[in-house]
Structure formats: structure tokens, C-alpha cells
Write a protein that binds this DNA or RNA. Sequence first.
DNA 1: AACCAGGACGTGA
DNA 2: TCACGTCATGGT
Length: 225
Amino acid sequence: MCQINQIYNKLLDHYGAQGWWPLLDYQKNINDDGLWGYHPDDYSLPKTKIQRFEVCIGAILTQNTAWKNVQKALINLKKLNAIKPDTLKKIDIEKLKKAITPAGYYNQKSKKLKIFADFFISVKNKIPTRNDLLSVWGIGPETADSILLYAYKKPEFVVDAYTKRMFTNLGLIDDNYNYEKIKSFFEENLKNDIIVYQEYHALIVKHAGIYYRKKTNTCKDPLLS
DNA sequence: AACCAGGACGTGA
DNA sequence: TCACGTCATGGT
């Protein structure tokens, strides 16, 4: 128990709870980015199967994509009533591509969404394992962990590009660490708690999005160093 | 006007 | 395993 816990406390103290997803039923609030802030401190979500599905879809759509663009795609899908496994499964692929265009990679992502809809229906009310998710085309380690952590509330730490960049820059992990090794590093040093996992990942994205963009990567971290 | 964003896949060493 | 090219829109 060392610096990564102190960093977590600093980030949480500085930025507050992030309240990431689901989005669609909670988009009334405005946060300090001008984006929609959703439901900080409400860890009862997702409450319904549809909300859970929305989290999964959002996790796929946000692959290497700014969340702001994903918001538009999700709202488009909602208008088509496509935040539903059955509807998404049946929807015309060209219509789907058009709806998710703002989120980019619409050829790949439309295919990924279709395949995921099938998978989501097939698991019924069971909780998929990490390997179940990784076996689905279009779901890699980060998306699998995001789905487990935010949709199914399982304690899987989510590692993204910012996490690696920020913590190598702070000197806490080695540059040659792969995804699984970074994930283990956090899970072995943090309390096994989905609230901590959920907030920490979101806070890293928040903080690194300001101070650890590729261009400003060499800048000194005003909060943590 | 390049550069990058809440990555994953296919290919070739 | 690991490095590299590819996918695509929209903000800065």
C-alpha cells in the first residue's frame, strides 16, 4: 500500500467522483467541462438490463475515440431504439453505421456491435467471465475489463493508454509492462473494491487527459509531482 | 493543419 | 510474444 493509494486520494479529492456511465437516463446535468455529468456517487447503476447493455455498447464505441463523440452516437442509437439487444441485432447495418458515424471506425464498430448483441443475448442473465468476453471479436482486454467493472460491477481494474503513460512518467511502473502486468500492479496494491476501481480509472482519464496528452507528456505534473 | 482521443485486429517476424 | 499498419470522425 503505497503511492498509488495516495495518488488516488489526491485525484479524488481534487476532481471528485466522476459518475461515468450509463449516460442516457442521466444526461441532464452539466459538469465543468460543458459535457454532461451523470450521476457522481451513485454506485447502484446500472440498474436495468438495458442500462447494462448501454454501458457495454459505450465501452465498444469509445475504443480509441473521444467520449464526446460517443455521446452523439449513443443518442442517435437511442432514437432508433437500438440500445436494446434484439433491436440492435436486427437493425439494418447501413442504418447502424450512419447512427454511429460520429464515433468513428463505423465499419468495424457496426460489426462489433452486431456481434456483441448476439453475445449479450446468448449469455442471458449470467455474468460472462473475462475469457468469455475476450473470445468475442471486437472485445480486447480494456473493453472486457470496462464491461465487467462498469456494467457487471466486478472488480477488474481497467488499464488504458493514459494509465500506462501517466504511471511510467511518474516512475511507478516500467515502460515494458504489458496490459496484464499493469493491471496486476494496480489490483495488488489497491483495496479490492469496485468503487475504487471505477473511480480510479475515470480519475486517471480525467487527470491524464489534461496533463498527459502526448504533446504535453513531458510537462511536469502540477498535482502529483 | 497536423495530431490525438476512455483500442482491437491482422499480419509478419 | 511483440512491433507495426489500419481503421475514421471531430476537437484543438
